[in-house]
C-alpha cells in the first residue's frame, strides 16, 4: 500500500494535481454536454467553472514542478469517495438540470474538496503538506462560498427552477 496523502508530500501533491485536473476536465465535459442539449445557461456556467479550475491546475502544477511525484494508477488514489472529491458525478447531470441544481452540485463538490484538504492539513505532521493542504482548503472554501452566494442571488430572481421540456424524449407507440 502506498503512503497516505497526509504522510508523503509527493503523494499529497499527486492527489492535488489529479483532483484539480479531473475537476477541470469534468467541468469542460459538463459544459460540452449542456451545449449539445441546448442548455445554454449551464453551458456558460460550467465553462466558466472549467476556466477557473484550469487556473488551479496551473497553480498546483507549478508547485509540483519542484517535487518528485509518484505515478499513481487511477484506482490507487485514496479518495474518501469513489471519485476525486471535486468531480460532479456523471449521473447527477440531466439535460433539464436547472441553474439551482447545478450550483447545488458545485457547492457540494467544493465542500467535499475543502473537507479533503482540511482533514489532510489536520493529520499531517510534515510542515509543507500542512501548509499546502491549508492553502488549498482555504481556496476550496472560497469557491464553496461563491457557489453559495450565487445560489442566494438565484433565489431572489424568480422562475429559475421551472422545468419545461421543449423536446421530450419521444417513445413511439
Amino acid at each position: 500500500m502506498k503512503a497516505k496523502p497526509y504522510e508523503d508530500l509527493g503523494v499529497f501533491l499527486a492527489h492535488s494535481a489529479t483532483l484539480e485536473r479531473e475537476a477541470a476536465e469534468r467541468f469542460y465535459e459538463l459544459a460540452a454536454m449542456m451545449k449539445v442539449h441546448n442548455n445554454d445557461a449551464l453551458h456558460e456556467l460550467f465553462l466558466e467553472l472549467a476556466r477557473y479550475s484550469v487556473e488551479h491546475v496551473n497553480e498546483v502544477e507549478d508547485i509540483c514542478k519542484d517535487h518528485d511525484l509518484p505515478s499513481l494508477k487511477p484506482w490507487e488514489y485514496q479518495w474518501p469517495d469513489l471519485e476525486a472529491p471535486e468531480n460532479i458525478s456523471y449521473e447527477s447531470a440531466h439535460y433539464l438540470m436547472s441553474p439551482k441544481e447545478a450550483l447545488e452540485a458545485v457547492y457540494k463538490v467544493e465542500l467535499k474538496a475543502e473537507a479533503f484538504y482540511r482533514s489532510i492539513s489536520l493529520q499531517a505532521s510534515d510542515e509543507d503538506i500542512r501548509k499546502y493542504a491549508h492553502l488549498f482548503a482555504e481556496e476550496e472554501h472560497e469557491h464553496a462560498e461563491a457557489a453559495k452566494r450565487s445560489l442566494e442571488e438565484l433565489k431572489l430572481s424568480k422562475g429559475q427552477d421551472e422545468k419545461v421540456d421543449l423536446d421530450p424524449p419521444f417513445m413511439p407507440e
Binding site: 454536454m33 449539445v36 456523471y90 439535460y95 438540470m97
Partner: peptide
C-alpha cells in the same frame, strides 16, 4: 464531443 444525454453512464465508461 459526445452527444449522449447528460447523466448517461456511458461517459463514465469512456472515462
Amino acid at each position: 464531443k459526445p452527444i449522449w444525454c447528460p447523466g448517461c453512464g456511458h461517459y463514465s465508461v469512456l472515462n
